[in-house]
């Protein structure tokens, strides 16, 4: 597929937001009792901002954004429609959570159930977003539970690093816990991402030129695809990058998303340098943009079988 930047930003931004919200709620009981209590408020406002930014990015993907509201109608069958419904719910719950904590700053407990509803919504949103891709069965690189696991784990990883950075800024000692859990989740998601790479490298395509045109012959060569200039078919479904870049991308993703952040986080624990957490978050976010790009680019759409030669 040809990666669309609007979708890359949408999924990475809201992923970080969802992860941050989950970290905030899960970490709430461990907040310092004598602290200012501003962490949940600030964090959920950042969540809200990230979700809004993702939503704005997604509008650039639409041909007719003014009709976007219509996308909420087919939630019975379409994961995209479900995402369109759950995303505003996620925004709302992050605002409510921020507001409640603003009202009784410093005391938690009674409001925690709102937080858990929010967590459920965030997890649901991970499911909706990733199922948009995982449900297309002939995009074999996507059609797997691994897609759902990776979207979820990578979002949580990114959110945990952000949570840790924010907690450090606000002087919350829970920052260290966020950081340590962040390292564990980063390492775990590295395993699942490696598994995804391994799985993709072994995929045997179900479709080939024989099934595409229905002629059973070993030697079939396309001589013309019906036009000399390009078309939507030649632009939207292929990344137009070299094999070499694709191979390098895998290394870039592994380095930026996992190896460098893990290294930086380990040092920051040693030297207690909060700034390194922020650098780790930013490096990882850039890596996640690359990861999403590769996620799209590596998916082989069977329609490409029909577009092999200009002729």
């Amino acid at each position: 597929m040809n990666p669309a930047f609007s979708v890359i930003f949408l999924t990475t931004l809201i992923g970080a937001g969802q992860g941050l919200f989950i970290a905030t709620v899960v970490g709430a009981p461990y907040l310092h009792q004598s602290g200012s209590g501003s962490f949940p408020v600030v964090a959920s406002l950042v969540v809200f901002t990230l979700l809004v930014a993702g939503l704005i990015a997604s509008f650039f993907h639409l041909g007719r954004p003014e009709r976007a509201w219509r996308a909420a109608t087919k939630w019975r069958t379409s994961w995209l429609s479900r995402e369109v419904i759950v995303l505003p719910m996620a925004m709302l719950v992050s605002l409510v959570y921020a507001w409640i904590h603003w009202q009784d700053m410093g005391s938690q407990g009674s409001t925690q159930w709102i937080g858990w509803i929010g967590v459920a919504i965030m997890v649901l949103l991970f499911l909706c977003t990733s199922m948009i891709y995982a449900c297309i069965k002939f995009l074999q690189e996507w059609a797997s539970a691994v897609t759902v696991i990776n979207f979820t784990l990578l979002g949580i990883t990114s959110g945990l690093l952000l949570a840790s950075g924010l907690a450090f800024l606000l002087g919350e000692p829970v920052a260290i816990e966020f950081l340590l859990v962040g390292m564990i989740v980063t390492a775990t998601s590295m395993m699942t991402k490696l598994f995804a790479f391994y799985r993709n490298s072994r995929i045997k395509a179900h479709s080939n030129i024989q099934t595409a045109i229905g002629i059973k012959h070993r030697h079939i060569t396309q001589r013309s695809m019906g036009m000399t200039g390009g078309s939507f078919n030649t632009r939207a479904f292929f990344h137009h990058c070299s094999e070499k870049l694709m191979a390098n991308m895998r290394g870039i993703v592994l380095t930026l998303v996992f190896i460098v952040p893990l290294f930086l986080l380990a040092i920051s624990v040693q030297l207690s340098q909060p700034i390194l957490v922020w650098i780790a978050f930013i490096v990882q976010f850039l890596g996640l943009l690359a990861e999403r790009w590769l996620f799209f680019a590596q998916a082989n759409h069977p329609q490409n079988l029909y577009y092999q030669t200009v002729g």
Binding site: L62, G63, R64, A71, I136, S231, F232, Q303
Partner: peptide, 17 residues
Amino acid sequence: CIGCEYCSWACPYGARE
């Protein structure tokens, strides 16, 4: 139609433009 292109991804034949 909002032009989201999702249906074109979901057609294995590349029949939509």
